[in-house]
Design a protein around this nucleic acid. Structure first.
Lengths: 154, 154
DNA sequence: AGAGACTTTATAGTAGCTTCAAGGTCAAGC
DNA sequence: GCTTGACCTTGAAGCTACTATAAAGTCTCT
């Protein structure tokens, strides 16, 4: 039968590390699976679908908490999906806000960058001086935008 | 004199937690300050300015590594500031890339959201179905955009 | 029987803090 | 002189979502 998977099968099929699958189990997103005699995890179709769901949510950059929330809703099939909409709308809001902050940030960075077009010594560098005297974020501030990703490095 | 600060003074003036100042010291961004008889840290104007510099860089969402780099350049005043420009340009590149990823993400989320405008039960919810069957990120994927900030929550 | 690919658990590391615990210091008030 | 309370000290743990490592057990093939 095709609906019995070991952790490595699932990992290969869905292109996710095995450790991540165990981590999701540890975090309660996946429930504890059956085991073979040799104590290997065994997964079926339902678990494969659940993991797919989780991975899609992650690809949309939801937190594990948001995903936990959606999974709870998914597990209560008669409930009406207004709450699903609410979770998604909140997430869309997070993303929109983040984009706004990053655009502000980009403006400030370009402004700063424009202070040093001509070569000079760092003692007189307009950028370094700007960084020492610029108004701080808390005054009308950009809070924090989160530029550095975990998968999208360099 | 106004140029002797304890850690709490500095923290209040620059609106940063005292623990964060100690953390920057631990990470080598600030050097070990003088101490009072009672072993309290004492800071002067130069340290205050250095911390201001660091906080401005953080407000522009640079990593501590990027900031360390800029501080090294700042500490070598005769060096020419081409490298300062390079650090900043690289950072501007990071931000631009992040904005691009988030815009992709926003499109996908809105697409998904459009699947459930009419109220229904979660069993039939187009969003939950979409999340279970959507193409995964790895096929042409958005890698990871990083939506959830540390200071800008909810 | 032995090699090699797979699995198991537990543990530590990543970034940039934040929070906690257990205690030491200092100025003011009674 | 003694207490109260605000401040300071260090060290360790917690946060997110993994990733990496180690040491050991299992399975499959030859």
């Amino acid at each position: 039968m095709t609906n019995r998977y070991r952790i490595g099968d699932l990992a290969t099929q869905l292109a996710v590390p095995t450790q991540t699958i165990r981590y999701y189990e540890h975090e309660g997103l996946l429930s504890k699976p059956a085991r073979t005699e040799g104590n290997y995890r065994v997964y079926g179709i339902a678990e494969r679908e659940r993991l797919t769901f989780i991975l899609h949510c992650r690809a949309l950059d939801m937190t594990l908490d948001e995903i936990r929330h959606l999974l709870r809703l998914r597990d209560a099939p008669g409930q009406g999906c207004a709450e699903v909409n609410a979770v998604l709308d909140a997430h869309i809001g997070h993303v929109a806000e983040r984009i706004r902050l990053l655009n502000d940030l980009q403006l400030q960075l370009k402004d700063l960058r424009a202070r040093c077009e001509s070569p000079s010594t760092s003692k007189d560098c307009g950028i370094l001086q700007g960084l020492a005297s610029f108004p701080t974020a808390q005054d009308g501030g950009a809070s924090r935008a989160g530029v550095h990703g975990r998968r999208a490095q360099e």
